[in-house]
Design a protein around this nucleic acid. Structure first.
Lengths: 219, 219
DNA sequence: TGTACATCAGTGAACGCGCGTTCACTGATGTAC
DNA sequence: TGTACATCAGTGAACGCGCGTTCACTGATGTAC
């Protein structure tokens, strides 16, 4: 007495259980501590079952990362409001990014740690998730600098993101001088405000007012 | 006929050969691709010989990283000049940092990828090397903002470093949107100039002119 | 609806390999005279 | 300087473990009548 679509239902259920288990283990031990056996045990399936749903652990990690990216995106989206002045909006985004990283330290780190073996590429839908995140930053950037075309907006958004990410990343990692928690908040706040003052002071398309542009080539 | 200090000489020689071999292999395959057997073969010693000089691979990687940090420091020092106006000086430091990362991609990456197992700590002399690097940034920062005490200068230097590092890191990693090489130079240039304009426009100790400070607590 | 057969999702033992670290041994270096 | 012994740096085979992935098998689900 085969019920309709029972196979597909079980399949989706198994996929969810595996994804959940993998997420849990990455959050606990990071990507490097991820073991197929742990996941299978936690998901309540046999070791081989994992490989009927995901091609390999890389594919599984990509799935987890994509979900994390979507959760991050939702968080950021919730902090977005067209009424908010663009400068304040950028500050808000920065704060929420820091909060997300703090609340999901290893999942967040996994987004940047995971690399594929030489020659393998991330699937398009995963890259699309990354781009979507930048769009939230590009929007207020566009308001602050209306003269930029949309590609330039994205590039500048990426640069801003990378800068803020660097600060959050090195701090949470405790690289170089360790910072007390409160200091990190203040520093990030101060830093973004500094950027905003710079943006107000002049168009970022101007030639730099400092120095000549002669990048060093060796060492 | 034992010559004086032959043991010590051989020891130092072996240490150098191992360090050189490890450096070469990290530059080629990164930290994760580092294998004790490869190093020993390249250094021309037996597998066990490695463990007479270094306690384990972690200790060896720390030694390589410390050397890399010193090379980076020399590069940066060479770009430092008290005559140069502080703004231009910061731009120079940024350019040289990018150049170093480009020229030593995996060694540079190893500085940030390497983590010790829970509970183990980096030795003090290694941390001192990190702090030294920040000093070069703290100096021009101090000139631009003389009201800061030296600790604040270091903290701000760390923040600036982290921001620039983030941009270089995400770009060289090809995360998010890939950037053509020339664009990265221009973006970094633009970004640092932006910061400098911000620094000119007002003291960074002022309260931010944007938004209220209510960092989100959850997710 | 019930029966007989076909399919294939899921099983879990086994494969295969990688690789850090150890340790009993040895030969080069150092020491004593 | 030369000889006899002591030390210990360095050797490399073996240990020990971890762990991703596969594959011959089976039992639950789907299909045909």
């Amino acid at each position: 007495m085969a019920e309709q679509g029972k196979r597909e239902t079980k399949r989706e259920d198994l996929r969810t259980r595996i994804l959940t288990a993998a997420t849990k283990h990455i959050e606990k031990s990071g990507i490097l501590g991820l073991r197929a056996r742990d996941i299978a045990e936690d998901a309540g399936c046999a070791l081989g079952g994992l490989y009927t749903v995901f091609a390999d652990l890389d594919a599984l990690i990509i799935a987890v990362n994509s979900q994390t990216l979507q959760r991050l995106d939702e968080t950021v989206e919730a902090a977005t409001n067209d009424q908010t002045p663009p400068g304040e909006q950028l500050l808000l985004l920065g704060r929420h990014y820091l909060a997300f990283a703090r609340n999901n330290p290893r999942l967040w780190r996994a987004l940047f740690e995971h690399r594929l073996a030489e020659g393998r590429e991330f699937p398009d839908w995963h890259l699309a998730n990354q781009v979507k995140l930048l769009t939230h930053i590009a929007k207020p950037v566009g308001k602050l600098q209306p003269q930029l075309d949309s590609q330039a907006q994205m590039i500048h958004a990426r640069t801003l993101f990378a800068a803020v990410h660097g600060i959050v990343s090195i701090s949470l990692d405790n690289r170089f001088i360790g910072l007390p928690t409160a200091t990190l908040d203040a520093e990030l706040e101060r830093f973004i405000s500094l950027l905003l003052r710079g943006l107000e002071a002049g168009s970022s398309l101007d030639h730099p007012s400092y120095g000549s542009h002669t990048p060093p080539q060796h060492d």
